[in-house]
């Protein structure tokens, strides 16, 4: 009977430990959301490298019409550093050890992924989301937030500029004035930064996918 008593005590301690562990140290890297529960995230300060996805409902409607569910997934990149740097090209250093990807489904079938990222514009951060189709090509890019002067803002928010990203893959050139629209000199720095960021994020995600992440 003494063994049962000790077992009971251990059981109590184990239950408490499990509760604590599940509440505080949950190692889960997946969180799922039905689209009905989607809401716009509130403002607040967040870590520089982790850009929140601010308007899931609107973005899903625009990028993956009919999508009914998404789940957050942390994609670890730290061990893919060499691969990613090589694909990025000269000065292509990995600047994040992980990214959040949101796997989107429609009727239980995967329709692609959404990634949110922050790029340094000339006058402040530009937050964008990009949609990646199951074949690895870009399905679209939408801006979440920017604080550029009107002339620059008009360029980078123009449908002509943003739609030009569609269909690009990690192997595409991403040249402003080439396969992407030319922009006015005043908007060049910001546009370049945004384009570089989109390409970098797409390469990081593509390499991760190639490694089964």
């Amino acid at each position: 009977m003494q063994a049962r008593s000790i077992g009971f005590l251990i059981g109590c301690v184990a239950i408490v430990s499990a509760v604590i562990a599940s509440l505080r140290f949950a190692p889960s890297n997946e969180v799922t959301f039905p689209v009905s529960a989607i809401h716009t995230t509130s403002s607040g300060v967040e870590a520089a490298g982790l850009c929140p996805w601010r308007s899931p409902k609107d973005d899903l409607q625009a990028l993956f019409p009919g999508a009914d569910h998404y789940e957050q997934h942390l994609v670890i990149l730290s061990d893919l550093r060499l691969d990613i740097s090589q694909r990025l090209g000269p000065n292509g250093l990995l600047d994040a050890n992980g990214i959040y990807a949101y796997r989107v489904t429609r009727g239980g079938k995967s329709v692609g992924s959404i990634l949110a990222q922050r790029a340094a514009g000339e006058y402040g951060a530009i937050e964008y989301v990009m949609a990646v189709a199951p074949d690895g090509s870009l399905a679209g890019v939408r801006l979440q937030r920017q604080r550029e002067p009107d002339a620059i803002a008009r360029t980078i928010t123009s449908p002509a500029f943003l739609k030009a990203f569609a269909g690009k893959t990690a192997a595409s050139p991403f040249h402003l004035g080439g396969d992407l629209p030319a922009v006015a000199p005043a908007a060049r720095q910001t546009a370049r930064s945004l384009v570089d960021s989109v390409r970098r994020l797409l390469i990081e995600f593509t390499v991760a996918r190639e490694h089964g992440r």
Binding site: V45, E46, A47, A48, R118, A119, A120, E122, Y123, G124, A125, R147, E148, P149, D150, A153
Partner: peptide, 18 residues
Amino acid sequence: ADAAATEMRRPGDKLYSP
């Protein structure tokens, strides 16, 4: 510190108030 991190700004950078 948090404002700078969120806006990705460092000394010498520009910041615009739209």
